[in-house]
Design a protein around this nucleic acid. Sequence first.
DNA 1: TAGCCTCTATGACCACGGTCATACAAAAGT
DNA 2: ACTTTTGTATGACCGTGGTCATAGAGGCTA
Lengths: 224, 224
Amino acid sequence: MEARAQLFQDAMGFSGISGLEIKKLAAMATMQRFSKGQMVFEQDQPCDYFHLVASGLVKVYICSASGYRMTYLLARRGEPLNLVGPFTGDPRFLCAEAMQATEVAHIPRHDFVRFVAANPILFSNIMAILSKAVDSANSRLIDMVEKRVEERLLRVLLTLLDKFGSEIRLTSAELAELAGTTVETTLRTMARLRSLGIIESERGQIKIIRPASLKNPERLPLWV
Amino acid sequence: MEARAQLFQDAMGFSGISGLEIKKLAAMATMQRFSKGQMVFEQDQPCDYFHLVASGLVKVYICSASGYRMTYLLARRGEPLNLVGPFTGDPRFLCAEAMQATEVAHIPRHDFVRFVAANPILFSNIMAILSKAVDSANSRLIDMVEKRVEERLLRVLLTLLDKFGSEIRLTSAELAELAGTTVETTLRTMARLRSLGIIESERGQIKIIRPASLKNPERLPLWV
DNA sequence: TAGCCTCTATGACCACGGTCATACAAAAGT
DNA sequence: ACTTTTGTATGACCGTGGTCATAGAGGCTA
């Protein structure tokens, strides 16, 4: 219970809430463990809970009819999986899958919405996060049209560098889903980056050797 | 003043607000006229106002460094141009441009945010709209990866058909910015659709002859 | 130790669509 | 009535990157 309160205290978007209110929030939450590969929620399901990652790593992705996936968010401790969903309750086409052993806090959506209404500062916090999410989606949309795969991958790597540091524990398939390309093209491009001395890689792990070469001033990190 | 109140009464996202509150909102608004091609707001400007279209048509688009444009929203009477911006005030990279003679209502952002806080139902309304916007952006992202230009254009045409009817007064350049492709490819694709008897077109105008052929069950309209 | 699955790696192929070029008709401006 | 601009139309070219195929190495389970 104390740990749960600490989780919400640290959580993205919950700053500015009093300790008392945080305790109320913690009291509404239930915790659940997921092992690698397990789904936290699936697409086309109604949204009944607000989800917040307590530990581990969860990827949120959209899944097309033909099975194509596009990763949209990599959430770790303190990051919410679905900020919009609880307000409408409607099914969306997002899925969330644990990438490691993970613990997630669930809050029934009506409790969450009532809590937000009672703490209007959350409105602005949520809006600030959403504005980043919308901008990021639009920015990726532009990238898909005018940037080649290498540039998109570099942007993904820069983003991951900022978020996780220079040791990135993702496979090429996972990178491909972030950059919007195929595994083969990702592998080819990574080979080129390796030959340029920008990265080193081994099975399931990428190490960024020259972070400076990613930090092109006109290349902004995504919001992932 | 009466007309302004009527505008907010009809506006998307403002349902469920009492007549008295609507009048307050109308009192905060100022109206401004724009002629074709004029900018309502530009990218990288701080957001000081909430904007609502009163008449005419405004396109909201993102503009990349290399000048590439991607149209994101076609807003007509009753549709807001920037739901997120007023909450943060931060500059984004969206631009809004009048496509015809247009009238837009402006509300100072702080007034708007206070009004929303005082009428919490607006928050759910806004969230419902934002969820569509985010979903639409993500859905277009997937389309960019896995759908060819013709399919993307058909989806754009279906969307426009639903929103504006079978007579669409847009140029090929404007369609290209909606579908995420070039003018040339749009023209070539339109030629093919014309030869299939799906559309007719003349300068600045497209007429959908066989709406049924667009309504593929697995092709959903975008949110534009 | 064998068997299986995942991840990495790379070659061959080729089509979609972007780029550049030219041409012409219709508006719009002077 | 003239020029300029905007929108439509099409041809030619070719590069990026998707698809399919094969192969091997690392890791997990029995």
